[in-house]
Amino acid sequence: MSGYMNLWLNYRATEDLFMKHLELVEDKPFELHFAYNSFIKLYSMHLIQPDAAEKLVAVCIKDIELFPRFKESWHERNPTYGFLPFIPSFKTLIIFYENKQRFYEAIDICNAALEYELTDGTKGGYPGRLARLERKLENQLKES
C-alpha cells in the first residue's frame, strides 16, 4: 500500500497534518475551501471514530459559511470559467442529516445550495433532493 494511502488510513496523523496546513491557509478563502474538502473526506472515511461525526458537521458548516467568499475568490482566479467546482460540504451535510432523520436541517442546507445555484452531481439535483426530503419530513410528522 502506498504511503499516501497509509496516511489517509491513519486518522490522527492525517488530521494533524491537515491542521498544520489549515493554519497556513486560514485567511485565504480559495485554499481554505480545498483544505476543508480534505477534512470532509477524512471525517467521512472515519465515521467510526468517536469524534468524526461532530467534526464532519462542523467543517461542513464552516465551508458552507465560507462559500460566498470562496465563490468570489474562484471567479477572480478563473474569470473565464462559467461554472463552480463541486462543493461537497452541502451534499455531505444534507446526507448526514437525512441519515439521522434531521430533515429540517437537511432541508435548510438544501435550500442554501439551491439559492447558490449549486449542483450535486445527481440526475434530480438539489430540487429532487429537496422534494424527497420534504416527503420524508411529512411522513415523519405523520408518524409522530
Results as ranks from 00 to 15, higher is better:
Y97N: 06
N6A: 04
K41T: 05
E23A: 08
V59K: 04
T80Y: 09
L42P: 05
C60Q: 09
N10W: 12
A52V: 07
D51H: 04
V25T: 03
Q49G: 14
A113L: 11
R77D: 03
R12G: 05
H75D: 14
Y4C: 06
Y36K: 01
S89P: 10
Y11A: 07
Y104Q: 13
M19A: 11
S38D: 00
S73G: 15
A112L: 14
K62I: 00
H75E: 15
R77A: 03
D16W: 03
V59I: 09
L114E: 06
C110N: 13
L17V: 06
A52M: 10
N37Y: 02
Q49E: 15
S44A: 11
G82R: 14
K91E: 14
L56T: 05
L93R: 05
A13R: 09
Q101P: 15
F18M: 10
I109K: 12
D108I: 13
T122C: 12
K41Q: 01
H46E: 09
F70T: 02
A58T: 12
I107L: 13
G124I: 13
N10R: 10
A13K: 09
A58R: 08
E117F: 14
H46C: 11
H75C: 13
E72T: 02
E54D: 14
I109H: 12
E98M: 01
E98S: 05
F39N: 02
K28E: 01
H33Y: 00
K71W: 03
N78W: 06
I107S: 04
R12V: 07
R77V: 05
N6K: 08
P68I: 01
L17E: 13
F103W: 13
H46T: 08
A58W: 05
N78V: 10
E23P: 05
E15I: 05
R69D: 01
Y81S: 07
L56P: 08
P50D: 12
Y116I: 04
K28S: 01
D51C: 08
I87T: 11
L32P: 02
E15S: 03
Y97E: 06
P50T: 10
A52P: 07
V59L: 09
P29S: 06
N6P: 09
K100F: 06
A35R: 03
G121W: 15
N111H: 09
Y104I: 15
L84V: 01
V59S: 02
I61P: 12
V59E: 04
F96Q: 03
I107F: 04
A58P: 12
T14H: 13
N10T: 07
I107M: 11
S44M: 09
R69V: 00
K123M: 15
T14Y: 08
L42M: 11
M19I: 12
R77M: 04
K71G: 01
I40L: 00
E117Y: 10
K123I: 14
R102P: 10
L47V: 05
H33T: 00
L9K: 15
Q101D: 13
E23W: 02
K91L: 15
H21A: 14
T122L: 14
F86T: 07
T14W: 06
K100M: 10
Y116P: 04
L47A: 11
T92A: 01
N10Y: 04
P88Q: 06
L32V: 02
E15T: 06
Q49Y: 13
Y116G: 08
A53T: 12
E15F: 05
F90H: 01
N37P: 00
F67H: 01
D51Y: 08
L84E: 03
Y97R: 08
E65C: 03
S44F: 07
Y104T: 13
L42Q: 05
E31S: 03
F83H: 14
